[in-house]
Every structure is written in C-alpha cells, then in structure tokens.
Simulated scan of single mutants.
Amino acid sequence: MLSDVLGLTPEEADAYRTLVSVASATPAELAGLVGRDARQVVHILGRLEGQGLAARSLGDTARFVASPPAAVMRALLVQRQNELKLAELELDSLDETYRAATLGRGVAEVIDVIHGAEAIRERVGHIQLGAREEIMNLAKAPLFSLGNMTDDTAIERGIRYRVIVERTLFDGEGPSFGEITQAQASGEEVRVADTVPLKLFIVDRELAIVPLLGSADAAKAGALLVHRSSLLDALIALFESEWEKAMRFATSAGDLQNAPAIDDLDAQVLSLSLTGLTDRAIATQLLTSLRTVQRRIRHLMDIAGVHNRMQLGFHAARAGWLEAERNGGGGTSRLRAVPSVSATTARRSIG
C-alpha cells in the first residue's frame, strides 16, 4: 500500500493513483474523480507537490500532472530504507553502550548470535569504526564476502591493524600481492600462515566475531559475537600464538635485514617462494615471467651460498633476512619470520 510504504495518508494515496491514470487534471477535475471536496483536493495536491509526487503542468499551471512513479517512488523508498538503516545502527550503538555499562555480565550475555551475511557485515563494520587501539584478524579460506574488512580511517587514526592470511587465499579468492603491498604501505601488519584454525575478528581485545562454520556458507549460518570473558581471552591467546608462528611478508628490499645485493623484486620473490607458492604462481602474483622468477631464485641461492630452496629458506631464517623492528599502534613489536620452504614441508606460509 502506498500509504504504508511511502507514508502517505489514504486520501493522498488515492489522489496520486488517480492522477497517475490521467494526462493532467485541475483540482476541480481531480475532486470529481476521487469524490472529494475541491478545497480538500487543493490541500492534498499541495502535499503531493511538496513530496515531489505531483507537479504543475508546463502548458497550464492550473493543471497538475503526476510525477513518474518509478523514479519518485524509488527515491522515496531508498530514503525510507536509509532511515531504517540509521535507526538500526543507532540501536546497535545504544545496545553496545548498555552492554558495556552493565556489570556482572551473566553467562547468557557473554555470547550473542548474529544471523546472516548482511548482519555480520554490518556488525563488523560497526565495531571496527569504534576501534580505539587494535584490530586483529584471521583470514581463512574459503571467504564469504564481507566487503572491505580494513577500515582505512582506523589506520589513519593510529589503530594497530594485524592480519594473518591463509596461504590458500592466494589461489584466487583472497588478496593479491599488490593489495597486500598497499595494505602494508598504509600501516597494516600482514603475516601469512599455511593454515589458520578459524575465521576470527577481534577489536580492542573487548569483542570478537567468530563465524559458526568454516565453509563458504558460513555467513548464512551466522556468527558468534563474544564479549569480555575467559572465552575471549582464549581467542586472543590463539591469535597471538598464530601471530608468533606466522611468516612476515616482505614487499621490498627495505623489509629485509642483513641481505646484501637484494632488490625489491628479489625480496618479493623470496617472500612468496617461502610461502610454498609455485614459480608460476609467483610470476602471476608479481605480473612477471616464469623465467624471471626462476632467475631471481637462482640469484638468491647464489647470495646465500646454497644449492636448493629448502637451504635457502633455512639460510634466510638463520641470517635474519625476514626480521625487522616495527612500531605498531600498541607499541613496538618484533616481527620474526619462521619461513616455509614448500607446500608440503612448510610449517607456516603466506596465504
């Protein structure tokens, strides 16, 4: 019903329907068609005109024409939907404030269940916008779409953003090498693991979101919103443990230490090679040729004085090539790589 959807009175909805069915009409003509007093119809037309649903005819300003229903009604519907979205966000904000102010949280209040992909996306975006100190994220395949999970304004505000990416995400659905390079350049700290145990998003060590299932349909099932509790402490400890074991991602020669005669492309090839990616996959990620990748790996082995890739990985770890000091939003952190050599022997790898 127009009166319900667009907020029109029954009289206004009836007048608009009638005006749509004729080329144009004067207030008196429309009054006859809807069976109402002409003075009442004048007021109704004034309200419809004010809402953009009716306009005066260009050829005769005493006559009125209906605005195109598709264009006008769609705009009004979008406006109503936006108002509802804002109301939902306000309710979420009030709910979070209420929960934060509530002492002695009971068992039932430790975990909330979020149903559906859109609700998960909204909640992640909401708590991310409210981040004050740090965001931690485990990115595991397969992904369900959550849009841009990294809030650029959070990094600009000095929020520390740490992400562990599963290596298999490089197979197509995850971030590209270029995207990771851009993320690190903006201040995001990225490490890579062969696998991560679950999908996880933690903000300020106060809230965590955990999808209920590990499949691509996880968003349909929902997710858990975990508040401060021993369970949240366990999830934070899990992330920190994975962070220590994951491999740092080098995107330039400046990310390497104690590695002479290595340029940016060498550093990138080394970093991707240690994740277990094939030479062809590395070439695809770096937008270069297979022969170039193979030549660069040979160059790296010559620098290290080794004869195979496994030895190269051990040398890079022993020589501290992938160690560096970095200042994060929460203070100085030591980023130490534990490199992998191949997809089968790697303990940790980029993903």
Rank of each mutant, 00 (worst) to 15 (best):
V163A: 05
E188P: 02
N148Y: 04
G178Y: 00
V203S: 01
M136L: 15
Q182V: 13
Q128D: 14
T181V: 01
G116N: 13
G178L: 08
A119S: 15
Q182I: 05
E188N: 05
Q182D: 12
L143N: 04
L138R: 02
V163D: 02
A154P: 03
R157E: 07
H126Y: 13
E134I: 14
V163M: 13
D152A: 13
E173K: 03
Q128I: 00
F144V: 06
I111N: 07
V124F: 09
Y161W: 15
E118R: 09
Q128L: 11
V165W: 09
F177I: 03
G178S: 14
S176H: 08
V107D: 10
I180K: 05
I202F: 00
I135K: 02
E133S: 14
N137C: 11
Q182P: 01
H115M: 06
R160C: 09
I135F: 03
K199F: 04
A139N: 05
T195G: 04
P142K: 09
L200M: 10
I135A: 02
T153I: 13
E118M: 02
P197V: 10
A193Y: 02
G147E: 09
G106M: 04
P197R: 06
A154T: 00
I120H: 01
G158D: 11
L200C: 05
V192F: 14
V192W: 06
R132H: 07
D152M: 08
V203L: 03
V203T: 08
R160V: 07
G158F: 12
N137L: 15
R191S: 06
S145Q: 03
A117N: 11
P175I: 05
V165D: 08
I164W: 01
L143P: 00
E156M: 09
I155Q: 05
F201C: 03
T181Y: 08
D151Q: 11
I164D: 01
D171W: 05
E134V: 14
L198A: 10
E156F: 05
L169A: 08
D171N: 14
V163H: 00
G187L: 10
R157H: 11
A108C: 01
D151S: 09
Q182C: 01
A117P: 08
I155D: 02
I159D: 00
S186C: 02
Q128G: 14
M136V: 09
E166K: 07
I111G: 00
N137V: 15
P175H: 08
I127K: 03
G174L: 05
H115E: 15
V113Y: 10
G178V: 11
Q184F: 02
R123I: 05
G174C: 11
A185L: 13
L138Q: 01
S186R: 15
G174D: 08
A117H: 06
G187R: 11
P142A: 13
G174K: 02
I135M: 07
I155F: 06
S176T: 15
F177R: 03
H126K: 12
G172Q: 12
I127C: 03
R132A: 14
I180Y: 05
A154R: 06
I111D: 07
E189L: 15
L143K: 07
I159S: 00
E173L: 06
R121D: 09
P175C: 06
A139Q: 09
G178M: 07
E166T: 13
A119W: 05
V165Q: 08
T195D: 07
Q128V: 10
Y161I: 06
P197H: 04
K140P: 00
E179H: 09
